[in-house]
Design a protein around this nucleic acid. Structure first.
Lengths: 340, 340
DNA sequence: CCATATAGTCCTCCAAGCCCC
DNA sequence: CGGGGCTTGGAGGACTATATG
């Protein structure tokens, strides 16, 4: 009981500000919300009181009455995959521009069934919309079962199966990107392109397979069964070892840059020259890709635009519209690994 | 006015559940909050009503009355730096385990003064604590000026200058890690170690310089002025070009793996053999580091532990304790780039 | 035109009430 | 008739929206 100084006071409320400024709390509300009907003089007095007290509006009370939290949720797959990570960061940026903050819920990899819990967690804190940056089939399946009460956007290609009610999608065209990469290799005289695929429960990985196959078929070249397992450099390395055993193709299209990195390593260890003996193309254009040995030809995705598209989709549903799906165009970045 | 079907009803409230279950709203609250004093029979009836209505408690109302939001804020520097990104993901994981969700606010790089706005945004939505994963001096300076009303933890080394009131820090020992790397090189017969430094407004970069210098001084070898500019592979490449001009040292310690990657590229282009002519060590142990050419010796940080430590720090302040600062131990991972 | 009162948002805490032994 | 387990009603909490001076 013998505490020193004044008791720690609560954060100031509108009523406190109103008292200090000699107005009603309603007038304070007007000032805070930039309502026009306040005399300049009154406004200034109120603002002075706000500054003096260090008043900060209480978002809980505000959310309670407006039924709007100003929060968007993002569900993302754990791990440091370049794509999802970048998308998340850009999403946050776009959300801020639209007046929202973003609350994230990550999924431990391999635990995609936890999407349900993650979504529940987000809904419970009152998010107004959810972006799912965890583009696996399991996630989409779970989502189909859940009739969310808020708009949900899938940040990923989603070209197969029935779209769950009220779920939209935005994506960078994975299939188009893969076709771009494969066509590039074929156009430069490579008679065959082997594909090192990503995990087939990711939509992106599936679409990259599809795009590669499109290009092979269009060119009338054989499409050997893709090899691959995960997204990591170690998987790419293993794929490289296997290709060395089974016979090297003139060109390889790896489903992402990390796979390409591991592949390059395996080839280098075996004394295989890139691009002379084998041309290699990746996907993502990771920060380091231009400095691999050799610098990697790859497919760049505009994650900033993707993030903006996701937020646009959500806000437009919130505004009562139907955004439809949006597919962005990827871009081929040519470097030494595929030079002729 | 001619809408079809029933008007879209509001989300069910406790009162609705109570009415359906034939109890008072208070009893519903008890059930939801797992209070013991509810008859099993009543509890089940209430739970059935909750399920039937799809009731979800309103976090705004809850936060309003409990004065607890269950939200932690994270301020992180934009861009896809491996360290901050991983830390953020792990932080989220640890926060969930502690019963919190995490709301992120990213900073556009070079706009560190925006920490103030970011913090303001987070405080306005009522976060209970803030983790700052954007370890630059500017950020720390701004933080010093702001007397935040909630606990703040700096996820970074913070070895210089006065600690702002109420701001704690958790970090992986950058200085120790750098010393480890440098000592490793010196112990394997390299007579000099040049340092390619990161941006000196990052605490981590500064500490890595300090650790490198420690080791040089302890071994009595000259410590040439570090070169470097940013964190990116392009900066490492530029540093490599410069070293090629000025004369190659027997060993280089790069402040992160991306710098090392660019450096390796520059050396490779010039026909310099690693580790025969020059040994190289990086920092971070990025996912691809084991597959660089050659595989990179580097310093690994335990980001999961770091994330947990940050959350621990926050929750312990929230519980009225004083967590003090915590420094985790980094680990040297030896690969071919430094083999003798 | 500007400012004030009053009602309503959904929940948790507190004090009191009921019932049954 | 008193006490513990279960339940209830009412009072905020900080704000916005809708009348009302």
């Amino acid at each position: 009981m013998a505490t020193e100084g004044p008791a720690p006071v609560h954060a100031p409320s509108m009523a406190d500000v109103a008292a200090l400024a000699g107005v009603s709390h309603q007038t304070v509300s007007r000032v805070v919300n930039e309502h026009p009907s306040v005399l300049p003089d009154t406004r200034e007095r109120v603002q002075a009181a706000i500054a003096a007290l260090g008043y900060r509006r209480n978002s809980a009370a505000r959310a309670l009455v407006t039924r709007r939290s100003g929060v968007l949720g993002a569900i993302t797959i754990g791990g440091t995959h370049y794509g999802p990570t970048s998308t998340l960061l850009e999403l946050e940026d776009a959300a801020r521009a639209a007046g929202f903050v973003v609350t994230v819920a990550t999924l431990r990899q391999g635990d995609e069934a936890a999407v349900g819990h993650a979504l529940e967690r987000l809904l419970e804190i009152g998010v107004e919309g959810v972006a799912v940056v965890a583009p696996t089939t399991q996630v989409a399946d779970v989502l189909s079962g859940l009739r969310a009460t808020v708009p949900v956007v899938l940040v990923s290609s989603y070209t197969e199966g029935p779209r769950p009610e009220g779920v939209h999608a935005v994506a960078v065209g994975q299939r188009a990107g893969a076709r771009l990469a494969t066509e590039h290799l074929l156009a430069h005289g490579r008679a065959e392109v082997v594909h090192v695929a990503g995990p087939q429960d990711w939509f992106d990985a599936r679409d990259r397979v599809a795009g590669w196959r499109d290009a092979c078929e269009a060119a009338g070249v054989p499409a050997r069964t893709p090899i691959g397992a995960g997204w990591d450099a170690a998987d790419g390395y293993a794929a490289g070892r296997r290709l060395l055993d089974e016979g090297l193709p003139p060109a390889v299209f790896a489903a992402n840059d990390q796979l390409a990195l591991g592949l390059l390593r395996a080839l280098s260890e075996a004394g295989v020259r890139v691009p002379d003996d084998v041309a290699v193309v990746g996907f993502d254009d990771e920060p380091g890709a231009a400095f691999y040995s050799p610098p990697l030809t790859t497919v760049r995705q505009d994650f900033a635009a993707l993030g903006r598209a996701a937020v646009d989709s959500l806000t437009s549903v919130l505004a009562g519209g139907d955004p439809g799906d949006r597919v962005l165009t990827p871009q081929l970045v040519i470097r030494a690994s595929s030079a002729t």
